[in-house]
Amino acid sequence: MTARVILHMPERFIAGFAKGKPPLLYGRIVQTLTARGLTADFAADMPTAAARVLQDGNLHIMENGQVQAQGWLNAATAYLEGFFHVDPKGVQAASSIGARAYEPALIDAEQAARYAQMLHARFTARRHSRYRQMGAVSALPKGAIAVFLQGPAPIRQGQAFASFEEMLRAVVAGAEGRAVLVKPHPLKPELGAEIIATLQAEGHALIATEANVHDILAACAVSVSINSATAIEGFLHQKPAVIFGRSDFHALVQTAHSPSDFPRALRAALHSPPDYAKALYWYFGQNCLDIQADSFDDRLMAIFAAAGFDAARLGV
């Protein structure tokens, strides 16, 4: 039986197609299929319970999914705008990249350097990030520890090894005289402001900032978060990262498994940073889909084939 491709998306994504403004990844998936004489079906349902996960012989792709079942792939932005997971295990912290071996000795240094330069031009030089940032350039203390707060997702999903408050207390206690900058998440500014105010009321020396993420990363010595995109985004600025949670880029950063583990993780991050170019090339160039890459179509079809849906099964 010829299989169909069914895209499970929020209704606003489907509405984007009707308005001629499809969501970036799904528009490109449809384009890739159309070029091969195929079509895609849209579904606004977002099944999570196993009983609702169909195994009907078709290929299902679910936005921000965590489905692990035959015939299902999960999709989401992979931290940098234009990069995506289409993954059989999950997305972001739960993606299958986390189980893959990172072997920098096997990565060509010149190729990695060229790739990092491309990312620099695409993001750093433009001071561009996934979420809207302040346009004005901010003056910030050099050599600070930059803490990036997130929304409730990593806590709710059981990815965090500490609460935001516990993380901030550990950073202040282990800062060794460095200033501590704290940026709320752009989509959850009220939550971030509340956390910062709570810690400041306890007497902790925190500098709240809404500066452009690139200004913060350029000024700081190291980034700290639960598992924020800024951890790997900081590699564009040659800055190491400490995280307090599970991630699929754990091989590239230092993980503090508890608040008391922060001093060790900080020392390791500062004294043994990764090869930033190789790390960026391995994660984004070898393990993610880049919407701007000439190889996007072939790599997408290879992911489909690995999931059991090669060209013949899809009817190409």
Results as ranks from 00 to 15, higher is better:
Arg132Met: 11
Phe17Ala: 00
Asp56Thr: 08
Leu140Asp: 10
Ala173Pro: 06
His120Cys: 08
Ser225Val: 04
Asp261Gly: 04
Ile243Thr: 04
Ile291Asn: 05
Ile303Ser: 03
Arg52Gln: 13
Gly308Ser: 12
Gly82Phe: 02
Ile29Gly: 15
Leu80Val: 04
Lys183Leu: 12
Phe84Gln: 11
Ser163Pro: 03
Gly151His: 04
Val224Lys: 03
Phe284Asn: 02
Ala277His: 02
Gly174Trp: 08
Ile145His: 05
Glu81Ser: 14
Arg313Pro: 15
Thr2Asp: 08
Ala3Leu: 00
Ile232Cys: 12
Ile6Trp: 12
Leu59Lys: 03
Ala144Gly: 07
Gly37Asp: 07
Ala18Phe: 01
Phe296Leu: 09
Thr198Ile: 00
Gln92Leu: 10
Arg122Ala: 05
Pro152Ala: 14
Thr32Leu: 02
Leu119Trp: 01
Phe13Met: 05
Phe84Tyr: 15
Pro88Gln: 04
Gln157Glu: 14
Ile216Ser: 14
Glu210Ser: 10
His185Arg: 03
Ser295Val: 02
Asn212Trp: 02
Ala175Gln: 04
Ile6Lys: 11
Val86Asp: 06
Leu33Ile: 04
Gln31Asn: 05
Arg12Glu: 14
Phe161Lys: 00
Gln31Leu: 11
Met301Ala: 07
Pro186Trp: 10
Ala3Val: 00
Pro240His: 06
Gln70Val: 07
Ile155Lys: 07
His185Asp: 13
Asp275Lys: 00
Gln31Tyr: 10
Phe148Leu: 13
Glu165Phe: 00
Glu210Phe: 06
Ser260Asp: 13
Thr230Ala: 15
Asp56Trp: 06
Val222Tyr: 08
Ile196Thr: 01
Ala265Glu: 13
Gly135Arg: 11
Asp275His: 05
Gln200Ile: 00
Phe296Gln: 05
His60Pro: 06
Pro263Cys: 11
Gln159Ile: 02
Ala75Ile: 09
Leu300Tyr: 07
Val147Asn: 07
Ser225Asn: 15
Leu270His: 08
Tyr281Gly: 09
Arg4Glu: 15
Lys21Leu: 14
Ala219Val: 05
Ser96Tyr: 01
Gln117Met: 07
Pro47Glu: 12
Val137Tyr: 01
Leu119Val: 01
Arg178Gln: 13
Pro22Met: 09
Gly151Trp: 04
His257Ser: 06
Asn212Ala: 11
Ala231Leu: 12
Gln157Ile: 00
Phe148Trp: 07
Asp297Ile: 00
Thr209Arg: 04
Leu106Arg: 13
Ala311Ser: 11
Val213Glu: 12
Tyr26Cys: 00
Leu54Trp: 08
Leu266Gln: 09
Pro88Ile: 04
